[in-house]
Amino acid sequence: MNTVIKNKGVRRAVMLRSPIFILPAFICFVISFVIPFLLGLYLSFCKFNIPRDAHWVGFANYSAAFSDPGFWSAFGNSLMFMIASVVCINVPAFFIAYFLSEKINGVGLFRTAFFIPNLIGGVVLGYIWSMLFDGILNYFGTYLTASPVYGLWGIVILVAWQQIGYMMIIYIAGFKSVPTDMLEAAEVDGVTKAQKLFRIILPNMISTISVCIFLTLTNSLKMFDQNLALTGGAPIETLENGMQVKTTELLALNIYTTYNINANWHGAAQAKAVIFFLLTAILAGTQLYLTGRFGQKPKKRVRAKEGAAKQ
């Protein structure tokens, strides 16, 4: 709710002093986000070892980034990983939350147990899971990085295990926000459990589902620690011309490894980072737009119904 200050003198005083309150946060934002972002954008058009000695090279870095097969491989991997993780995290998280919203014994214990993996750091998880996977796979005479299939599914399993608990908490909050009068009315009308879930609960949880999908999408795109610690991009396929493709490398890790090739590749890594930013921004923007559209529909319907009832 907006507060309108009607007295001109008070309004002027507030307007003059407001920078004092805004300034600290604004300075932090500029230092931490705006300056590094603009510097990064500028460096993506430069050749540099350290930013101070950068010199302009135009679009050469973007050309190098787009002609790197490792980048496209990582792009494809990220896309597959994003789809797999959205499904593998949200579907189990939704159903676990559904069951843990019921009045059953030990609900608190279960919720805590599912949430705990989210508190462990990505690198630690990566190393622990690599030992677990290899322990099992060695029994069958193979190992995690023997095939990209093992490696990529390994990351999906790890991330699902880590994030299901977090999404579960958001879904539980969503379940709690479903109007109880609506649920009770449905029960009185004799709906089945499936009808209750799909006809009443799900439509009321669109905004919660959108939040969870948005978080999973952006988390999947930003995935770095777990990728680095679990597979490091291996197995590496060396093509006949000697070029390397890291078959389980995701986009963020690809940017990091590109930067570390040598000083000539710092600019190309920066260009990849800018492309990565644009991709994330487009995806997040689209997702928010769609959420806004679909999220408003139930409200519109309710308003329309309310209007009809009044008439």
């Binding site: 023997a146 291996a234 197995p235 590496i236 396929e237 390397q244």
Partner: peptide, 11 residues
């Protein structure tokens, strides 16, 4: 980078 390729092949 070169070593990583050799190690992967050795594996």
């Amino acid at each position: 980078t070169w070593r990583a390729g050799v190690v992967s092949a050795l594996q």
